[in-house]
Lab assay of single mutants.
Amino acid sequence: KKRTSIEVSVKGALESHFLKCPKPSAQEITNLADSLQLEKEVVRVWFCNRRQKEKR
């Protein structure tokens, strides 16, 4: 499966949402994916990866 490159503006939106809520619910992920026009899975994985980055 190909990697999804996320635009800078979208990254900013994801980042600001992450600061408010690092573990969004499935519903929040769906809403966020719809508003940013990304697949739910891409948003879910982004949050997962971002939480791991926070641990490092």
Rank of each mutant, 00 (worst) to 15 (best):
A33G: 03
E54T: 05
A26N: 12
E41C: 03
L32H: 03
E54V: 06
N49S: 09
G12Y: 15
K55F: 05
C48I: 14
R3N: 11
I29F: 02
I29D: 01
S5A: 15
V10R: 09
K40I: 14
R51Q: 08
I29L: 12
K20P: 01
L32D: 00
K20I: 07
R44E: 15
V8F: 14
L38A: 02
R56S: 08
G12T: 14
N49V: 08
F18C: 00
E39R: 05
E39S: 11
K55M: 09
H17A: 11
K2Y: 04
A26K: 09
I6H: 09
I29R: 01
Q27N: 15
E15G: 00
R51S: 07
L32S: 00
H17K: 05
E54R: 04
S25K: 03
V45E: 14
K2N: 09
K55I: 06
E28D: 06
A13T: 11
Q52C: 08
S25C: 07
R50I: 02
S35I: 09
A13K: 13
R51P: 03
R44V: 06
V8I: 15
R50M: 04
E7S: 15
K2W: 05
K23G: 06
C48Y: 14
E28I: 06
N49H: 12
T4E: 10
C48E: 14
K40W: 10
E41T: 05
I6G: 10
A33Y: 02
R50E: 03
E41Q: 04
E28A: 09
N49R: 06
C21P: 02
F47C: 01
T30K: 11
K20Y: 05
H17Y: 14
I29E: 05
E28C: 04
K20S: 06
E54Q: 06
K1G: 11
A13D: 05
R51T: 11
I29S: 02
A26Q: 12
R56C: 04
K1T: 11
E15T: 01
C48M: 13
R3P: 07
S35T: 10
T30D: 14
Q52W: 07
I29T: 01
T30S: 13
H17R: 04
V8D: 10
S35Y: 11
N49L: 05
S5T: 15
W46L: 03
Q37V: 05
E15M: 02
Q27A: 11
V42D: 12
Q37Y: 05
I29Q: 02
G12M: 15
V10Q: 14
N31E: 13
V42I: 09
L38Y: 00
R50S: 01
K2S: 10
R3M: 14
A33C: 03
N31T: 13
Q37A: 13
K55L: 13
V10E: 15
R51M: 13
L14P: 00
S9N: 15
